[in-house]
């Protein structure tokens, strides 16, 4: 019996391993050759691309901006995602499924279309600018293209649908009976949030937040379109280095730095899950 199932596993495993290892190996190896520009590379293995990355303030600044906008976007996404997840999870009517359907559809639509919509909303004669101008809150039309705020909003749109579904799966694990129990014992609603809902959801928030942060770090499309070439993040820099400067090895080294950071965050969240799970068992 055992061997029969392993036989099922072997062919797809070989195919996947070839695709994963093959593609990753080639670009990682390329990143260790000196970049001579125009697609040419040196012949000796060297760390010169990485030395350049970690000594050049331009690259370091890009790295820092990537982390900064990703962290802000992840926090704001959690903030906007939580109420939807909580309300839908506690809803008893059919409306809940309808509300979730809206979220699921939004995750299907390509981010390019959503960014398109954002650009229309924030355009010079768009809804937001007109309202703010009429209220006298701003003096001239504000553009989100090429600003860090714009990139943050784009990243939020890239992750919010996913994060609502993720938070929803966290909130449904907290039974409403716990809330009732706390209230019967005299806790106010505020206290129920402080002592029951938030502590029980916290592990999910931490892990979910890290996953969202990771998605933002690797997000290309929204950052490229809303950054408008003025705000660069690592994924945008990778694409521009290939397409505009034709520097494959440099791009490969930037991509590898990105890959390693993302994997480190993943490992960290994996450890966090383990820790929090065992901690939660003690609480329960």
């Amino acid at each position: 019996m055992e061997n029969r199932w392993i036989a099922y596993l072997i062919p797809p495993f070989i195919v996947t391993l070839l695709l994963v290892a093959g593609s990753q190996f080639v670009f990682i190896q390329n990143s260790f050759y000196q970049d001579l520009g125009l697609g040419r590379t040196g012949t000796d293995l060297t760390l010169v691309n990485y030395l350049k990355f970690f000594t050049d303030t331009f690259y370091l600044k890009t790295f820092w901006i990537t982390i900064k906008v990703s962290a802000i976007a992840a926090l704001l996404t959690l903030f906007l995602g939580f109420p939807i997840a909580y309300v839908v999870a506690r809803m008893k009517s059919k409306l809940a499924m309808f509300l979730l359907a809206g979220i699921v559809v939004s995750t299907f639509v390509t981010i390019v279309i959503k960014v398109f919509g954002l650009i229309i909303i924030f355009s010079a004669d768009g809804v937001i600018n007109k309202t703010l101008l009429n209220l006298g809150l701003i003096e001239r039309a504000y553009s989100i293209i090429g600003t860090q705020e714009g990139v943050v909003i784009g990243l939020m749109h890239f992750t919010i649908g996913f994060s609502v579904l993720l938070l929803y799966s966290v909130v449904v694990t907290v039974p409403p009976s716990l809330e009732y129990a706390a209230q019967i014992h005299g806790a106010s609603r505020l206290r129920v949030y402080q002592r029951v809902i938030i502590p029980l959801c916290a592990p999910g928030f931490v892990v979910g937040g890290l996953m969202i942060f990771n998605m933002c770090m690797g997000a290309f499309t929204s950052a490229a379109l809303l950054g408008g070439g003025r705000v660069l993040t690592l994924p945008v820099l990778v694409q521009r280095t290939v397409m505009m400067e034709v520097k494959y090895s440099t791009a490969a080294s930037i991509a590898f730095v990105l890959l390693v950071s993302v994997i480190l965050i993943n490992l960290f969240s994996l450890i966090a899950i383990r820790r929090l799970r065992s901690a939660r068992l003690v609480v329960a």
Binding site: S23, V238, A255
Partner: peptide
């Protein structure tokens, strides 16, 4: 786990 842009340049 691999950002899509990294997979893109890798392929």
């Amino acid at each position: 786990q691999i950002p899509a842009i990294v997979s893109g340049i890798a392929f």
